[in-house]
Write a protein that binds this DNA or RNA. Structure first.
Lengths: 253, 253
DNA sequence: CGGCTTCTTGAGGTGCATCAAGCCAGGTGG
DNA sequence: CCACCTGGCTTGATGCACCTCAAGAAGCCG
């Protein structure tokens, strides 16, 4: 039996304040240090000894479950420790728009600060593990946790830049170009995480990619086929092999 | 003779570290208090007496000039006190993409924090006045300016949300729908600033709107004409009159 | 097995980009 | 003063890239 919270189709899409009994917490291995968070974010710095005493709770999220829902009260920022997620907005008519994909080291939930509630939803594409940076730690005055604050600034700014790039990406003229750029982006991501930039498995569906790039899933499929026919990539469902990185780059013009 | 810095056509599009002699500063009326910044941002709070001693420099920017350029070293965040601006990214081929429009109370430059240099460019559409929140004030540890920090968090988050909305906006199916939504957005902006939500003058060109919405300027023009022919709006170059707010809303479906 | 989701591929219609022409306002210089 | 130019805007004609609808294959799971 799965946890009923936030499974698509069974759980409410928008947060309603119904108290679900907390599952018993595993009592060990569920905490991360500030230094681990800094390393994950690739934030250039070392936590002082004092600050490194701070521990942050981890949370496991099964594929399909949500880390937070639209409308849910803000309870902190989340750093991805493991797995892949998508951030979406869900419109009144039920249609959803993918705003970004998040992998290890990415920050989520920054939109929740200003209204004190999340206005996006973070859905796990694979089984995930995230670290929560609680609002209380982030904003409490006089806590002296300047390291955390500076890091948060920096990480939020990085998210802003990521978002701008997404926006610009979905702007590019032709659909094949968008898909080509998307693949390069993914390739860079995997590369940064130590995986092969040539061969990787996409964690998201064609529909998600399409939503992200502002095209239909059929167009994504066709673009992938086209790139395959040009001998630039190999496609086996979600497993992508980049045969010629140069040709893929050349496509961006 | 105009100030040569960052006038389109005469200045380099991308920042290069050439020292331009500073113009003599006006010695008075050029400073804003923390409380004024808070009020501008609509940030819910009052600066303590101590913190309110902080003063932030204002800067006048003529239409067409830039507040900061792509690649320029990060020197702080900017709050719009007066006028309208656009934030753009400029691609290698010279084409530009409008990411957002900023008016009184909006924050700019958040993308500069993480790489310590701006990766967008803020161009004035009208004569403007902006207030600089210097990096040193924002990040200096132990300065005890927690009020400023919390405000910055909040304001940055608000920018993130704005950006997400832009992204979603440029996603909407049909071009006329996008333009209709854009007009409603502008209407709400002007309304919030105390101007008429029914009748206003757009500060940006059709090209800018098109870039923002991911359509061509011709399409924007046609969409406006279409909405006019439906009796929903009145168009006189950049002066827009909304005849039926309901009909405009109905268009969003 | 049957039901489900995901993905591919095809055929046809269309919304928008593209190219092109012309209008208008503002600025510049003879 | 007018002639000229430039940038912004509108409107039309044409082609094509993408959406839509549809059918079928492949994989997953109870």
């Amino acid at each position: 039996m799965m946890n009923l919270q936030a499974v698509p189709g069974t759980a409410p899409r928008v947060y309603s304040p119904i108290r679900v009994p907390e599952r018993p917490r595993r009592s060990e291995g569920d905490w991360s240090s500030l230094q681990e968070v800094m390393d994950l974010l690739l934030y250039d710095g070392h936590a002082s000894e004092a600050a490194n005493g701070q521990l942050f709770r981890r949370r496991r999220v099964k594929a399909g479950q949500s880390v937070f829902l639209m409308g849910q009260p803000f309870d902190g920022l989340y750093v991805v420790r493991l797995g892949a997620l998508k951030t979406v907005v869900i419109h009144d008519d039920g249609s959803e728009h993918v705003l970004s994909f998040s992998m290890k080291g990415d920050l989520m939930g920054t939109d929740g600060i200003c209204k004190d509630q999340y206005c996006t939803e973070a859905v796990a594409l694979t089984d995930c593990e995230v670290i929560r940076l609680p609002a209380s730690e982030l904003f409490m005055p006089g806590r002296g946790c300047n390291e955390l604050e500076r890091m948060a600034y920096w990480a939020i700014s990085r998210e802003v830049v990521k978002e701008q790039m997404s926006y610009t990406l979905s702007h590019a003229s032709k659909s094949e170009v968008r898909v080509a750029r998307f693949l390069l982006m993914q390739s860079n991501c995997f590369s940064a995480l130590g995986y092969s930039p040539r061969r990787f498995t996409l964690p998201m569906t064609r529909r998600d990619i399409g939503s992200y790039l502002s095209v239909t899933l059929e167009t994504v499929s066709r673009a992938l086929s086209a790139l395959h026919n040009l001998g630039i990539i190999e496609v086996a469902s979600r497993e992508i092999t980049i045969l010629s990185r140069e040709a893929l780059h050349a496509y961006e013009g």
